[in-house]
Design a protein around this nucleic acid. Structure first.
Length: 448
RNA sequence: GACCCUAUGGUCUAGCGGUUAGGACACCUCCCUUUCACGGAGGUAGCCCGGGUUCGAUUCCCGGUAGGGUCGCCA
């Protein structure tokens, strides 16, 4: 039987990083086995159902590159979809639930209670065979002993999650349920329901959860919990995917950076780790830096420009060759695009504000004449390129009998406003003679 | 309270009945260097605890502890 897996998020308005990984693992398994990856929107709760909230999910999955074989095409619950098992919004599947309730009712497996419909739950412990965790026996808890039956349909007519989830998986022919371990205990309910419908339950694979760095549960408000953060802050999507793959799964060959197509090839359920993983932003950032370094130039420019614009700078107001040359000097020097405005923003600003502390160290009465001398030397340069600038600076340093750093630091600060940045000689070449002379000049006139 | 899952450096992990317990991030030192980053060399740091089984347990079993999860007319 061909594999059919699904990702069934509830449109809450954001896509949790853990949910994103669940989607990824489902997708990886589908692609590994040649099966189908289905997207189903669990919008039973009307309060959580909004076009915008669904869009967040679709955008997130698309950004990660997790294409679905069946499911909605747009965020509109009544809009078009692909696949033969639709609708793919629970809000549009009411008849199915109704039909299933009646089937249980007519066979005495469910009953009405105070206006709600409850399921006659098995009293016996239930065996949950799990591809990740192994066989799990789940007896009733003490509270459940008091009343093992549970609500299928609320008194207001709304079916509950555990019920619709099972009915949809059944109607959609889902073969493997890959989901967060938080559902492991509840799986007993689901298996009992499948049994009541007289069908074999799907295979289960409960994957460990993603925790905060401190080991606490990662919830909505925690840093990095929302996938949208990475999208907005200009992470490379393949870095995020790569990092997520490494959380609870390993290629076992010490590779850290590996393309998703390799993961598709190697991925399988039994090798998923059984313990929760903590989210390590440092490692994600490192990986992002690696991908950023390997990124095709045009994409690098595009993402850089986006990051600069987001920080209020206007790179598009400069000639394209200038922008590209400027960005080339920044390439490989930072891990996150969000660092770029601080790193290379001086290329696109008219006014440079120097760090006061650094300025005090650099623009001393002793240094000023030296910098002035250097400026004069720069002024006489016929060609204002990195090699000439370097030669000129070194010549002046030699003449003054000082180390190059004595000149480099003040000039860097004057040109960029910062004590760290791209290669000084290259940066000055890109900036051009006018701006360099002007920026050096302006720090010389300011008293310190 | 009951039940379920889990346990290798700070973090992600590889591994195994006998290994100098491997890699990566982070951190520290040094080198390279105009700064930063990269790169190179080195370093600190780990098998949760207690019982078994065994000639021998990090590895297998049991217990404890700790962390996580579930027990809703939330999803």
């Amino acid at each position: 039987m061909s594999v059919r897996v699904r990702f069934a998020p509830s449109p809450t308005g954001y896509l949790h990083i853990g949910g994103a990984r669940t989607a990824l693992f489902n997708w990886l398994y589908a692609r590994h086995t040649g099966g189908k990856f289905i997207l189903r929107i669990e919008d039973t709760d009307a309060a959580r159902n909004s076009h915008e909230a669904v869009k967040v999910i679709l955008d997130g999955l698309r950004w990660l590159g997790l294409d679905w074989d069946e499911g909605p095409i747009t965020a509109d619950a009544t809009g078009p979809s692909k696949g033969d098992c639709g609708p793919y919004f629970q809000s549009a599947r009411k008849e199915n639930y109704q039909r299933r309730v009646e089937a249980l009712l007519s066979r005495g497996l469910a009953y009405e209670h105070e206006g709600a419909i409850k399921f006659k739950m098995t009293r016996e412990p239930i065996l949950i065979p799990d591809l990740v965790v192994g066989d799990v026996v789940r007896p009733l808890t003490d509270r459940e002993e008091l009343d093992p039956d549970w609500v299928l349909v609320r008194s207001d007519g709304q079916p509950v999650f555990h019920f619709v989830n099972v009915v949809d998986d059944l109607d959609m022919g889902i073969t493997h349920v890959i989901r967060g371990e938080d559902h492991l205990s509840n799986t007993a309910k689901h298996i009992a329901l499948f049994n009541a419908f007289g069908v074999r339950p799907p295979k289960y694979a409960h994957i460990p959860l993603i925790l905060n760095k401190d080991g606490s549960k990662m919830s909505k408000r925690d840093t990095g919990a929302s996938l949208a953060t990475y999208l907005e802050e200009g992470y490379a999507n393949e870095a995020v995917v790569n990092y997520l793959c490494l959380l609870g799964w390993s290629p076992k060959d010490n590779r850290e950076m590996l393309p998703v197509k390799d993961v598709v090839e190697l991925f399988d359920l039994p090798q998923i780790l059984r313990h929760n993983a903590r989210f390590d932003m440092d490692k994600l950032n490192w990986l992002n830096g690696e991908y950023l370094r390997a990124m095709a130039p045009d994409r690098f420019y595009e993402m850089s420009v986006h990051a600069l614009a987001r920080a209020g700078l206007n790179p598009d107001g400069h000639p394209l060759p200038y922008v590209k040359a400027a960005l080339d000097t920044c390439r490989g020097k930072f891990k996150l695009f969000s660092e770029l405005p601080a790193y290379g923003g001086f290329y696109f600003r008219e006014e440079i504000t120097c760090d006061p502390e650094a300025a005090q160290k650099c623009f001393t009465p002793e240094n000023k004449p030296r910098v002035e001398k250097l400026r004069d030397a720069f002024g006489k340069l016929a060609t204002f390129d990195a090699a000439s600038l370097e030669a000129a600076l070194k010549a002046v340093a030699a003449e003054l009998g000082v180390k190059v750093g004595v000149l480099v630091h003040p000039v860097r600060l004057a040109c960029t406003g910062s004590s760290s940045g791209p290669s000084l000689y290259h940066l000055m070449e890109v900036l051009g003679k006018d701006k360099v002379m002007q920026r050096i000049g302006s720090v010389l006139t300011v008293s310190t």
